[in-house]
Amino acid sequence: MSATLYERIGGEAAVNAAVEVFYRKVLEDYRINRFFDNTDMDKQIAKQKAFFTMAFGGPNNYTGQDMRNAHSRLVKSGLNEEHFNAVMEHLGATLTELNVPANLIAEAAAIAESTRKDVLGQ
């Protein structure tokens, strides 16, 4: 069997590197940083690691319902398609910055994209 996306992309080390770059982009983006104003940074980084592990197809037990529950409060305060697109943009830019090959970025983006309806509570 060929290596999983998670293995090909570099496993846990890649997740750790990506989260640092990604979270900086998110906090600096005026379109979406208000959603992170009241979050504890350490807890948020732990969650981002889980998100990246999932986007890389790594070991995770995320269910669509988890995604719905975790974001329902944000949906109530206006989280919409544009915000989701902004996050997808940062995901792509982060992996490009870390020199991840384009075909692997596409695979990761497709996995992240698959959570759109759950995240936005649709």
Partner: peptide, 18 residues
């Protein structure tokens, strides 16, 4: 403390070093 945590992170400090 909470404001500065984010500020130094954005200035390039790794989260594990804060």
């Amino acid at each position: 403390v909470n404001q500065m945590k984010k500020q130094v992170f954005l200035k390039g400090v790794a989260s594990a070093d804060i």
